[in-house]
Amino acid sequence: MPGIGPVTAMAVEAFAPTLSTFRRGRDFAAWLGLVPKQYSSGGKQALGHTSKMGQRDIRRLLIIGAMSVIRWFSQKTPDADTWLGRLLRRKPRQLAAIALANKMARSLWAMETREEFFRDPRAVAA
């Protein structure tokens, strides 16, 4: 997966519990501290800032990997109409990196629990 190299993979393997212990990818991302805090009440959903609670080493590695993906993406396809391109037009780079790291963590959980390899969405659409 772009942004996840051997160091990040080994850190997840070493520091994280078995990923099948988490019910959803969001639970794994929350364990890492990559999801916004919820202040929800009475059926109204209100999301706050990212909590930064949880496993700091893996979260840092995922954010660094996400920043490298964003840097590569900005140089290669600056005006692409993809999820990341639309996000970068609306939000600052660091916030986009955290959102991408959250997405990478969820994808990592899905690949590990389903025992699948990474499938590039661009290859599927072509």
Rank of each mutant, 00 (worst) to 15 (best):
G3R: 14
V12H: 07
F15Y: 14
F15N: 05
A16H: 06
S20A: 14
S20Q: 13
R23E: 11
R23C: 02
R23Y: 02
R26W: 11
D27I: 02
L34M: 06
P36Y: 05
Q38T: 10
Q45F: 04
Q45K: 15
A46M: 02
L47M: 09
G48S: 10
G48V: 09
H49E: 12
H49Y: 08
T50L: 13
S51T: 15
K52H: 07
M53I: 13
Q55K: 13
I58H: 11
R60Y: 08
R60E: 03
R60F: 06
L61V: 14
L61I: 15
L62Y: 09
I64Y: 07
A66I: 11
S68E: 08
V69W: 00
I70W: 08
S74Q: 13
K76L: 14
K76H: 10
T77C: 13
P78K: 03
D79R: 09
A80D: 07
T82Y: 00
W83M: 02
L84N: 10
G85P: 12
R86V: 00
R90V: 05
R93E: 03
R93I: 03
L100P: 01
A101W: 01
A101Q: 07
A101G: 05
K103D: 08
M104Q: 14
R106V: 08
S107I: 07
E115C: 12
E115F: 07
E116H: 06
F118C: 00
R119V: 04
D120G: 04
P121R: 04
A123G: 01
V124I: 05
A125Q: 02
A126R: 10
A126W: 03
